[in-house]
Design a protein around this nucleic acid. Structure first.
Lengths: 249, 249
DNA sequence: CGTCACTTTGAATAAAATCAAGAGTCGTGG
DNA sequence: CCACGACTCTTGATTTTATTCAAAGTGACG
């Protein structure tokens, strides 16, 4: 339960960067966001930020690391429903719904801003921010559908390939890629719980992708050696992410 | 491409009934809804109502039959992402997003209301309706997450059991159950594309549920012979549907 | 009464889970 | 600096689950 004061200059906040990708922001908008991103805390891996059954309020923004939405079965099996990567905001103003149907927790060490309900309301006063947050939420929902397709109708190798392509697009949008590689600070077990497989099977499927020369992984950095071919394998069409940049660099 | 004029008295519209389940409606609200439900058309099974890539606008309401959201792979594989049962409304006012990322189509013959953008805007003028629609949308999203859990982390038999439990709750909310049975006007192939399996495997799994005495199916009517035990098998917790009625009748 | 779509069944195959053990990694504390 | 312990990753052998392929059987409906 490390809790460090969020010091240092907010490094051109990823949330800001992401929302700017949806449309021009005014000075006042960026100022409000900067304020939010200044108030972050470092959270260790494996920490729940809000739990199933809790009453949701405010928002949670991730500025570093990977967090996720997940549910557990009684036997301990976990299904991850979404990744929250830097720039992603989890809007807990669910208005009508007063209970979380899932848990949000960190997969890696994360830098996180917990946004109080009043602050969240203030943010939504800014039309451009409100629009951006709404668009982000709609994209999250489209992503959820894509994940359902992924698990329901793609093979193990395809599932991983698709996930890696998606992450390249999402992380590039917040400037966290270098070429076709990015930090993927999660374990194979996490990947398994994301794609509905076993960690053993993930391991073998990763091996296959490596053998095919499609990816490389050293330490926690993932490189897509041939994004075009990887996208083809996964049948990846990035439209649902609503980013105008072309897929492969 | 049968298109019949939507005659006859709107039979206490399922949309109305569903939204009433979320909170009291004023006279004016119900009147507006009644108007909508009067303008329905009969649509044959297998008809796309709006396609992936189309520009979404207005709303689509289903008052009879089963429709669904789905996507296709290049090889023809289909993944169904959601069911639209009577009372369900598909809000296409996606504001920011200007392309459908999936298709909405009928699984059975359906009675459907296509709601023009202006009409949709009028409906949203009514605060109670707007709230109801918003709540419905949030529940749809929670349902999507539950489906991801279903496909990712449950066995074939469990997936079907879970789906059948969910449908009992949803259809009961609009008065379309009698006891623990309801019309399920879809094929085993549809069930397969819903649960990420093969129709052959669905057939065998259904057989297992029957043999266990958990369900019965004559013609298109499904009966949950022992809802409590079925829910236990599926680990079904109806919280995400936000209906206060207890699960088993 | 024939057709077409759907359901059911069997046999062979493929994909993924399970079980188990060993090797690598990393942070911690002596 | 090294050793320890806790994860994580890797690999093999085996079993289970699900798909594929194929062929009847059933039923609704014109």
């Amino acid at each position: 339960m490390k809790v460090l004061a969020g010091g240092g200059a907010a490094v051109s906040g990823p949330v800001l960067r992401k929302l700017q990708g949806f449309g021009r922001l005014e000075e006042a908008d960026t100022a409000a966001l900067a304020l939010v991103e200044a108030g972050t805390r470092l959270v260790p891996a494996g920490t729940d930020l809000i739990r199933e059954g809790d009453r949701p309020e405010g928002m949670i923004a991730v500025t570093e690391g990977f967090a996720c939405r997940y549910k557990l079965r009684e036997n301990g099996a976990r299904q991850i429903m979404a990744y929250l990567v830097p720039g992603d905001v989890c809007d807990l103003d669910n208005g009508a719904l007063n209970r979380m149907d899932h848990t949000v927790g960190t997969l890696s060490t994360c830098r996180v801003a917990r946004i109080m309900p009043e602050t969240a309301r203030e943010l939504r006063q800014h039309p451009a921010l409100a629009r951006g947050l709404r668009k982000a939420a709609l994209i999250d929902e489209a992503t959820l559908r894509e994940w359902l397709m992924n698990i329901g109708r793609r093979s193990a190798v395809e599932r991983l390939a698709h996930l890696f392509c998606e992450l390249l697009v999402r992380l590039r949008a917040v400037g966290l890629t270098s070429g076709n590689s990015y930090e993927l600070p999660i374990t194979q077990l996490d990947l398994a719980d994301t794609t509905g497989m076993t960690s053993v099977h993930v391991n073998r499927s990763l091996g296959e992708l490596k053998r095919e020369g499609l990816i490389e992984r050293k330490s926690k950095r993932l490189t897509l050696c041939d994004p075009a071919r990887l996208a083809e394998v996964a049948e990846f069409r990035p439209d649902y992410l609503h980013r105008e940049e072309p897929f492969s660099a």
